[in-house]
Nucleic acid binder design. Structure first.
Lengths: 201, 201
DNA sequence: TTTCTTTATTCACAAATGTGAACGGTTTTA
DNA sequence: TAAAACCGTTCACATTTGTGAATAAAGAAA
């Protein structure tokens, strides 16, 4: 429950997919909340149920899986910039959120984060009350699907050096925002291997 | 435009996610068609736009990417059995279908295939006319997303032998239905490497 | 400032995976 | 039936990628 004006950053994002009327905007503003999370805060723990979605307004987040040896593998980055319109905005384990299973990843705040918070209950309520929200969610799921498709397809069909080149072309802002240590495991390679690839330009 | 009764296999699938009334069923039956495709038929070509979705009723399909050297990499399998309720039924490049870009994969019939065909136009019409269809599509997109999530996560975090073990546990029917040559590239490994993994039991 | 971390890089070596060839066995086709 | 194509496997060897250690530079903390 927050003032409608405060919700504008989120509405602007929704407007990429659907048109919004005042009733819908009011309904949404009534069923979300604003949160500030300090640096190093864990938004979600591995093995926990996930019933929240954070829509990032500002700040940086990262999710990771911890393998058998204790190493972390970066699953995704979360932030909000002009460039990244339909990706990286929702910090959560969306698979766990949808399927009511426990999370396979942890999500951490790399800086202080400002976000809108939606609980599972709120999302469900909004789909019941608003056709616009239902349609927006359908389209959001489509882009989430396409992003995952691209991730899986890239990992399946491209070698490490080509995956890095693709990242340089399509997501070069990540290189400015995150350490190579994080980028490497996001690409599915060891940090030293990423160095090797970079040196062979 | 087909008789409502004929559509039952598809309705049964929809009922996993939503309840169906007679109006909705009639609407859907009026906006789909039935097709039979011979063995070796190509349902979709690499580099072509994709404005069709085939819902498999019977038969086997496979999609693949052709790499720089001409080798094919299996992207997915398509079939309809009791076990596989929410996967493998839609033969298409759904990413290309959604984004109006050209397909990165080809889809071929490995046997004769019976399927319901939905064009992009028909899908769009149905979302405009039926809230039930819109909601079903939202949930379909959610399972499509979860399947892709699992695929990407597996490729990112597990070694080849573990990916094979996971397939044995979770999708062992694939081993009965498709050659190891196809299974190997689906797992992201060479056929010889799959043999090696299998021999080390 | 000095010290302590973190980061990126390089190296030598190990491990994992790919490659091309060869082989029987099966299935398909002529 | 015979020939051809395909399939799964094994082998030796090549290539790619991971690993642990070492180093230097940059940043953060004291």
């Amino acid at each position: 429950m927050i003032p409608v004006e405060t919700c504008e950053p989120f509405f602007n994002y929704m407007r990429k997919f659907v048109e919004l009327d005042t009733d819908t905007m009011q309904l949404i503003a009534d069923h979300t909340s604003e949160v500030t999370l300090p640096e190093k805060h864990l938004l979600l723990l591995e093995g926990n149920p996930c019933d929240k979605i954070y829509f990032i307004v500002s700040g940086l987040g990262r999710s990771y899986y911890t393998d058998f040896s204790g190493k972390t593998i970066t699953w995704n980055f979360y932030f909000n910039t002009q460039e990244s319109v339909s990706k990286n905005l929702f910090a959560t384990d969306y698979r766990a959120f949808l399927s009511n299973t426990v999370s396979s990843i942890a999500v951490e705040a790399l800086t202080e984060i400002h976000a809108f918070l939606f609980t599972k209950k709120e999302v469900h309520y909004l789909t019941e009350k608003s056709f616009t929200y239902e349609r927006w969610l359908r389209k959001l799921n489509e882009t989430a699907f396409m992003n995952m498709y691209d991730r899986a397809f890239t990992l399946l069909t491209m070698a490490a050096a080509d995956r890095y080149e693709k990242l340089v072309k399509e997501e070069s802002h990540l290189l400015q925002m995150f350490s190579n240590y994080y980028i490497a495991s996001y690409l599915g390679i060891a940090p030293q291997s990423l160095s090797r690839i970079r040196s062979q330009h």
